[in-house]
Design a protein around this nucleic acid. Structure first.
Length: 482
DNA sequence: TCTGGGGTCCTAGGACCC
DNA sequence: TCTGGGGTCCTAGGACCC
């Protein structure tokens, strides 16, 4: 009967399941009547990038640490100690550098190879605890615990026999779900070294809020099930409307002007006004606050519809040669991602821009190219991208950033060939496959195209990077006996 | 001197068609 | 004087996320 079970649960909430009930009424198992109460958990790694650095450098424990964005530009992760010093998310590094050095804050460039690998470890650990998981970002995942309230939960309780709560004290299934989440949390910490917090509620949006509380209040031990809270008003009115998932600074401003300052007031807002000001997205969000699920879990990540690659330059760039090299290397990276998801691209856009923070003359331009035949070939894409650069480059400006965006994809199976196409497509595909294999095995950039240049004066700064402890042989952590 | 990068979804408005 | 209405497709831009 398992297929019935899953069919039942995949029906969109609120939709009547009339057809289903008619067709199967005769053999309807009890499980269909007993529709589970939704229990969505959000597992979120605490200060993820900082935590990754700490796993391999325990001296960073209990001291202020920050991680910088690409180009060592802004603060993108802060330890709790760094937050306590008043360091803000997204703050430009150069503005707070003196404060950081005076206070003895340790700072690191983004070590993306390390974070991606650690993320994968965390996610595969989480996936052991539920069949329904949506990996939402590098450091967050939604877990559906709805159907686990009784049977599976009990099973796990026996298997793991957690030391956190005496099983005799577990009164309700909800209490045991909190307990289960504590066990998930402890396992992730033990297996990966990364601390996570878990918020549970009926909807994703409320789970986000639960997670905030789980992080904020130490005595919750990293887990909060919002469904156990008797007074939702007391909880939601503590959340600034700014901090509601889906409310950015623009909407927050408009809402506050209307006297809507916290999540409880937003929950009670007038539907028509919300629809008018924030569209259907806003309406969904408000319903989620009312514990009506509107955002289902995405269990299998869909292929990307757009792939972008761009970088700010380490120094201002004025020559078209340098721009071309940079763009060629962005195309290389984007094409690799494209092939990884087995897509072919029909449209490529290249853009360049000056530094908007400067008062000097500004220039921005983008050049879209519609490709005659869908392709995933790096040299072909480089050729089109460089034509684009020729078309929009203007001498006399100090360029700060360039990038390429690939969009409009098709899959391997359906390639529309062009009558005038002279390229040997299948040979090209084999060549790219060989190239990817070599670069996967020997390290990125082992084989590259001459168009990306040799000196690469435009390269971004990354002065304070920790080693790729988990993904490069020569940089593995080592233990020295004394 | 020094201010990240990579995504998604929705909507409004224009072009075009019948 | 009086100048339709509705549908589709496309794109740019706005808003948001981490």
């Amino acid at each position: 009967m398992s297929f019935i079970h899953s069919d039942f649960n995949s029906a969109k909430s609120g939709e009547p399941e009339v057809g289903f009930q008619r067709d199967f009424a005769g053999e309807m198992p009890a499980v269909c009547v007993d529709k589970p109460t939704p229990a969505i958990a959000l597992a979120d790694c605490n200060n993820f990038y900082v935590s990754c650095e700490r796993v391999f450098n325990p001296k960073l424990e209990n001291r202020p640490v920050v991680v910088l964005s690409n180009n060592d530009g802004c603060l993108v992760a802060r330890s709790n100690e760094a937050k306590a010093l008043g360091l803000k998310m997204g703050e430009p590094f150069f503005k707070v550098r003196r404060l950081i050095e005076r206070a003895g804050v340790k700072y690191y460039s983004s070590n993306y190879a390390l974070y991606a690998d650690m993320s994968q470890r965390v996610m595969s650990t989480l996936a052991r605890f539920t069949p329904s998981i949506e990996i939402y970002s590098i450091d967050e995942a939604f877990l559906d615990f709805s159907r686990m309230a009784k049977a599976e939960l009990g099973g796990h309780r026996l298997t793991y026999s957690p030391p956190y709560t005496d099983p005799a004290q577990i009164e309700s299934p909800r209490q045991s779900l909190t307990d289960y989440a504590r066990m998930v949390r402890a396992t992730v910490k033990k297996w990966t070294g990364i601390p996570v917090s878990i918020g549970i509620a009926e909807t994703k949006t409320l789970a986000k809020i639960a997670n905030r509380f789980a992080k904020r209040f130490k005595k919750l031990d990293g887990v909060l099930d919002l469904r156990n809270m008797p007074d939702p008003e007391r909880v939601l009115s503590q959340i600034d409307v700014n901090d509601v998932w889906g409310i950015g600074h623009r909407y927050a401003l408009r809402l506050k002007i209307r006297g809507i300052g916290n999540a409880w007031q937003l929950r009670n807002a007038d539907d028509r006004w919300i629809q008018k000001e924030m569209g259907v997205v806003g309406l969904r969000l408000v319903n989620e606050l009312r514990a009506i699920p509107c955002l289902p879990l995405d269990l299998s990540p869909p292929r990307k519809k757009e792939i972008a690659s761009s970088r700010s330059f380490g120094v201002p760039v004025e020559s078209v040669t340098d721009i071309k090299q940079a763009v060629a290397s962005f195309v290389t990276r984007a094409a690799e991602k494209l092939r990884k998801q087995h897509s072919f691209v029909c449209r490529l856009t290249v853009y360049l821009m000056t530094n908007p923070f400067k008062t000097e003359p500004q220039y921005y331009n983008a050049f879209p190219v519609c490709l005659p035949t869908p392709t995933a070939s790096t040299p072909e894409l480089i050729r089109y991208a460089l034509q684009g650069v020729e078309a929009i480059f203007r001498p006399g400006f100090r360029y700060k950033k360039a990038g390429v965006v690939l969009s409009e994809f098709t899959t391997d199976a359906v390639i529309q060939t062009n009558f005038f196409d002279e390229c040997d497509r299948s040979r090209e595909i084999r060549l790219m496959r060989a190239l990817d294999r070599i670069n996967t095995r020997m390290g990125p950039g082992t084989l590259r195209f001459a168009a990306v240049g040799v000196h690469q004066r435009w390269l971004m700064r990354q002065q304070y990077c920790s080693p790729a402890y988990t993904s490069r042989w020569e940089q593995l952590a080592s233990v020295h006996a004394k």
